[in-house]
Amino acid sequence: MLGVIYAILFYIATAIIVVGVAMRVRTYARTPAPLKIPTTPAPTTGWGVFWRMVREVLLFQSLYKSNKWIWLFGWMMHMSLWLILARHMRYFIFESYWWIDAVQFVGTYASFTFLFGLGGLLIRRFAVERIRYISSPSDVLMLLLLIGIGASGSLMRFVTHTDIVSVKAFMLGLSRFHVGHLPSDPVLLVHLALVITLMIIFPISKLMHAPGVFFSPSRNQIDNSRDKRHLAPWAAELEK
């Protein structure tokens, strides 16, 4: 019974996140940038822009220039997130790859840095007057949601332990449209419920920053306006 409910929820959530993100990304990709607005100094070649992007996504370069505390907490949180997700890959694929095995060890501890970063961000949200001013309830709830996921996950990993093999079987089953048995461990159910929530709100929330960053004209444009003419389709109409 539990298995069926969670299976349905997982299918719905997966559909929402996949279709939702795809639709948003399609809108971003199709909306033209009428003018050249890279924040300069900007790279003058495509490769240069690629590296600028890599630095932004992997190192949070601009954030580092901006505020060392936010950078520290934010960067820790995100890098831990990638490690955790890599570690989670073992639930979704049959055979493990060497890189998934490789992150198992560090990944274990990533849950601490994940929670540490989130805690720091949450404290700042209340402690720093300026950030408190700009925060909406959703900003706080988002952090609490991630903390909830991280905390329930860590609980399973380090305290209560759950039947990982069954979880894996259940998740693999879902990918073959087969609803199997899900262990009725409450911590696991909380973990999964929160993850489902995260997936559902992803395309309608600020979490769209993840794909959004790649579409930001001030970061992804090449500084070559004197060499190559840039013209949006709707602007070309004006010339007729």
Partner: peptide, 20 residues
């Protein structure tokens, strides 16, 4: 619809506060 910057900027801000 006409300006990607407008759309993307309105959607992506995470209220991190770095610009404040």
């Amino acid at each position: 619809e006409k300006n990607r910057a407008f759309k993307v900027y309105l959607d992506t801000c995470v209220k991190c506060g770095a610009c404040t």
